[in-house]
Amino acid sequence: MVTDTLPSTDTIRNWLGEVPDPEIPVISVTDLGIVRDISWQGDTLVVAVTPTYSGCPATAFINMEIEAKLRDKGIEDFRIERRLSPPWTSDWLTPEAREKLRAYGIAPPIDGTAPDGRTAARAARLAGRSNLAVDCPRCGSTDTEKVSQHGSTPCKAAYRCRDCLEPFDYFKCI
């Protein structure tokens, strides 16, 4: 490949915008905010990816999908780097991603409510429980309750709507 034909990093970001998250396929890896950097080092493309959760089993699969997409687009000389710092936060979800999540039936994260390790005892004392007001993604009601702090994948918690009675996932704020 000669230098003047290398695709721009914007073009590559758009390509990666076509790579779906394996666990929530309505959003892409760029929507999720895990593609941290795309750069050319000489003729080598370097894509820096950060994991959502340390133990997320989808991490290896996501790298594989990114690799497949790049090869599909004719890129042969590339490297996928794991970048831990700064650690991923759900604040990096793009506004479009949040709407896609809601339409898919997953309540998007509420920024600024990440646990700090000190809230449970305080919340229990004040309110008897520590629920956030998470809007139901189906009917919009704010009368919802947390069923479990963990859901079907590491990035979600389980909630239930008291109005339409449907259970739903909440994308955890971290």
């Binding site: 959760y53 340390s54 650690p87 936060t89 990440a114 646990p115 700090d116 390790g117 000190r118 809230t119 449970a120 005892a121 919340a123 229990a124 520590s130 702090q149 963990h150 955890k172 971290i174």
Partner: peptide, 12 residues
Amino acid sequence: KEVAYQLDRASD
């Protein structure tokens, strides 16, 4: 960040 989440849950 993950352990903060775990500690909140365990405390609760």
